[in-house]
Design a protein around this nucleic acid. Sequence first.
DNA 1: CGATCGAAGATCCTATAGGGAAAACGTCCG
DNA 2: CGGACGTTTTCCCTATAGGATCTTCGATCG
Lengths: 256, 256
Amino acid sequence: MNGLLRPARRTTLADDVYESVRALVMDHAVAPGERINIDALARRLEVSPTPVREALARLEADGLVRKRPLAGYTAAPLLTRAEFDELVEMRLILETASAHRVAERFSGRRDATGSDSDSGSGDRAAAGNGDGAGADPPGSADVLAQLRREAELPDQVPGTEGFAAIAAFTAQDARFHHLLAERSGNRMLHAAVVRLRAHLHLFRLHFPTAHYGTSAREHLRIVDAIGTGDPDAAGSAMRAHLLAAADRHLPFFEGS
Amino acid sequence: MNGLLRPARRTTLADDVYESVRALVMDHAVAPGERINIDALARRLEVSPTPVREALARLEADGLVRKRPLAGYTAAPLLTRAEFDELVEMRLILETASAHRVAERFSGRRDATGSDSDSGSGDRAAAGNGDGAGADPPGSADVLAQLRREAELPDQVPGTEGFAAIAAFTAQDARFHHLLAERSGNRMLHAAVVRLRAHLHLFRLHFPTAHYGTSAREHLRIVDAIGTGDPDAAGSAMRAHLLAAADRHLPFFEGS
DNA sequence: CGATCGAAGATCCTATAGGGAAAACGTCCG
DNA sequence: CGGACGTTTTCCCTATAGGATCTTCGATCG
């Protein structure tokens, strides 16, 4: 029995290790700030240290682990108050633009075909040389439907409580935001949003909190704004959602 | 004689290799799309393949090299038209916000102390646990002076022509934009701007172009807007600059 | 009692060797 | 003459061993 899942070796070992370690850090299987022993990790995953080292290097670029020269790797420490504020500001910048762009594209496609100055950019981007698999770009019609479906998804997954409920909520929230970013048609924007998300997830897992109804309501408001084809309204709705969400997390910083 | 410069081994070998390979790709010492042989690279740098592999993994996360499973690494291909448009849009999102934020901080500090709703965020972020060395946060007074100095720097460096002139122009332009992003007080924003910059540099080097006077004038206009403490004006000036710069690069896509 | 210095332990970092998969080439067939 | 197949070659990927470095613990001195 192997420590990590090898589908069919369609990927390289280092990639699997990367996913495994990522999951380990994301689920706090290793505490924030804790040292990560390369050899021990390799033994645990039943691979040699080399691919582990490679995976760790990639994770460092993602900001999930830190490396001190000649002292080894450590799991990313918890966000400080200042870093949390930066994260919120960054999300405001990125995701407001994301919502804005989706509304723009939706309205443009609905009315006729690209009528804005730099039209074609987004469309060609979405249809560009994708990653090969699973990239099915549906018509603009069901973009809205898909977003609404993610926003409306059962807030309280039946049969889940406590930790599991938190995880389910987090996963749903992530799906919505990622989908929105993806539908902006800008792959770089999408990637940036996903990268930021990891840090927020880390933080939220440490201070378990979930506001099912409230969050879902705010999500729907964003979708509605997109549906009306008003980019500014969509951006404002997203901004309000992010600020509200930040406020909901704020109490956990009182101690510091 | 070693293939790469080892300062005093204050860093790890893999870090040096990372910088070397990064420079190789950035200067087009390896052509875009060209395959990168790990063993050959290791011999050229006179190190073992292991640190090379580690450096390549980090570079892949930065988007400077691509990895096909079981097929090796290749240098990042040149930007397609769609990707170029995405890059421009991304810069608009990030750097407009950057200019906006700098103007905000400047006016806030000059008038009195933070008067906006979420004040303190930026300041505390800038004063957070920095990377230790070289992070000297000067008073708000010389922030403007420093920006102006970078913008005013001799456009045409004496004694440089052709390729060298392009490189000098690019370096100056990069310094200005990076400095601005850094002074936004948001380290994540700064990092994102720097990451994007690498791709633009790659593109520009392949289609050598430089508009010394024009670019410098636009930079100064941004600095002036910041000086007046008007965030929206600063954002607009940055937006105009980026769009104009994009238009200057556009002719190179006629062939595609 | 606290701080500094020294030595042992653990760990990281680098180098080398071998197995296996994919791509490229030449050859054969239609 | 073009396409498909088999073989060869190249290259990536993984595993193991040894040297250098940092951290930690204990003892000693102020």
